[in-house]
Simulated scan of single mutants.
Amino acid sequence: MRNALAGWDALDPALRWLMRINLIALTTATLALAAVYLLGFKHTAVEIDLGVMVVSIVIMLVTPPLCRRYGATAAIIGLTFSALLFAVGGTWATPNLTPLTALLAMVPLLVGFPYLGRRWITALSIVAVAGSASVAALGEWRRTEALNDVWWINAIVIAASLPPGVAVVVFLVRGAYTRLQEQSSQLVESRMRIVEVADAARRSIERDLHDGAQQRLLAMSVTIERARKELVAGRQDGAAELLDQLASDNREVVTELRELARGIYPPLLTERGLVAALQSTARRSTVPVTLDIAEFDRPSRQVETAAYFCILEALTNAAKHSGATEVLVTLRGHPHLSFTVSDDGSGFDRRQVAIGGLLGMEARVAAAGGLLTLQSEPGRGTTLHAEFPPASPA
């Protein structure tokens, strides 16, 4: 039997489950009614219902091979013929079943909504309306002629015929409710993800502005102060050189903000990679920077971005807060990406200093799967070190 129904395996799990429930209910009701018939309760109504059930089962058994080629369409068409046959035959034999049989004419439409296109749904809508109306009319016509004076005949036929129809309707409603619950849960989950993604994007933009353009602007403010001092001291050439540097830095900041607004930041990092971006940053730094780069292959974009902005903020902090005269940036690419930023500045006591910027760097490195550590003591400089996991093999 499992091999005979293997064609249903390609169906959606909910539809496959409904088809099997329908077949089991029909088979069980047919066997029960056949047993009653063999026990001596022989009557035309019983014979009609038995015939209708057997043909309905045959129709259901024809659908699995067709489902391999036509999918859900074949299954629902088979279910439609089976339901209509059962509705008409059951109503003819036992008009008392009319409320149920009229409902059965609408089952294929309810089942088909998630799986069929507009044309098929329109056709099934016509079948549901015309079928249920026809069955109701047939039931009223047969009611005066087919009701048996012997109560047990009607009772037996109804008791045997009712379960498969009720089972299909019950499981259909249950399946629809289950799908509704799942969709509701998925909707809630998707909304939560959207909020989380939006918050993460906002935090990312905040970090990018803080670690990128804001740091550049702070560095420019230092340069402006240096230019002012040059002018006060009467060193026009030195002031002019610093103003040229400011003009260049301003153009780069404008470009970086423009690229950041487009979601592509910074342009040099995107186009040429971490090494080129750090070389450019080192040239602009107000504190002399030494780059020590070895065995370097370009990492993933996420790792590259995290490393760049962390190094950029470390350089800015060294220039702004530490009073450092030199910064050493060590970058290694094997066996995995790591970097160290060391300065000879005044250092600080982490217990007495707000470390909001460090938390932002830690979050950025952690998001890329890395680990960030910081060592600093008053009078002994600051060392920032990060390790990123090896790249997954292609």
Results as ranks from 00 to 15, higher is better:
3 N>Q: 14
4 A>Q: 01
5 L>C: 01
9 D>Q: 08
13 P>D: 02
14 A>I: 14
18 L>E: 12
21 I>K: 00
23 L>E: 07
23 L>D: 03
26 L>P: 01
30 T>N: 13
31 L>Y: 07
37 Y>L: 03
38 L>W: 12
42 K>D: 10
49 D>Q: 14
54 V>Q: 00
54 V>R: 06
61 L>Q: 06
64 P>E: 04
67 C>D: 07
71 G>Y: 05
76 I>A: 10
76 I>Y: 04
77 I>S: 01
80 T>M: 06
84 L>W: 00
84 L>T: 04
90 G>Q: 12
92 W>C: 12
94 T>C: 14
97 L>E: 08
98 T>F: 10
100 L>N: 11
101 T>I: 05
101 T>W: 03
103 L>G: 05
103 L>Q: 05
104 L>H: 13
107 V>E: 08
110 L>K: 00
114 P>W: 05
117 G>I: 09
119 R>T: 10
121 I>W: 03
124 L>Y: 05
127 V>F: 02
130 A>C: 10
139 G>H: 07
140 E>G: 11
142 R>G: 08
147 L>C: 00
147 L>R: 15
148 N>R: 13
149 D>R: 04
158 I>R: 14
162 L>S: 08
165 G>Q: 02
166 V>N: 01
168 V>I: 12
169 V>Q: 09
169 V>D: 08
172 L>M: 10
172 L>C: 09
173 V>G: 08
176 A>S: 15
176 A>P: 05
182 E>D: 11
184 S>D: 02
188 V>I: 09
188 V>A: 15
190 S>I: 03
194 I>L: 13
197 V>H: 13
197 V>R: 14
197 V>W: 02
198 A>L: 14
208 D>V: 02
208 D>Q: 14
211 D>R: 13
213 A>L: 07
215 Q>E: 10
220 M>L: 06
220 M>Q: 13
222 V>T: 12
222 V>H: 07
224 I>H: 06
226 R>E: 07
228 R>G: 07
228 R>H: 14
231 L>C: 04
233 A>C: 01
239 A>K: 02
239 A>D: 03
245 Q>Y: 07
248 S>V: 11
250 N>M: 05
251 R>Y: 08
251 R>A: 04
256 E>F: 00
263 G>I: 13
266 P>I: 13
268 L>E: 08
270 T>F: 10
270 T>P: 02
272 R>D: 11
273 G>M: 01
274 L>I: 02
275 V>D: 13
278 L>W: 10
279 Q>H: 10
283 R>C: 03
283 R>L: 12
288 P>Y: 05
288 P>L: 14
293 I>F: 04
293 I>N: 07
295 E>H: 11
295 E>M: 03
299 P>N: 11
300 S>H: 05
301 R>V: 14
303 V>K: 00
304 E>Q: 04
316 T>C: 09
321 H>N: 01
330 T>F: 02
337 L>M: 15
341 V>F: 06
342 S>C: 04
342 S>T: 13
345 G>H: 02
349 D>Q: 03
350 R>D: 09
350 R>F: 06
354 A>E: 15
354 A>K: 10
359 L>V: 12
359 L>I: 11
360 G>K: 12
362 E>Y: 15
362 E>I: 06
370 G>R: 04
370 G>V: 05
372 L>A: 14
373 T>G: 00
379 G>Y: 00
383 T>L: 06
392 S>Y: 09
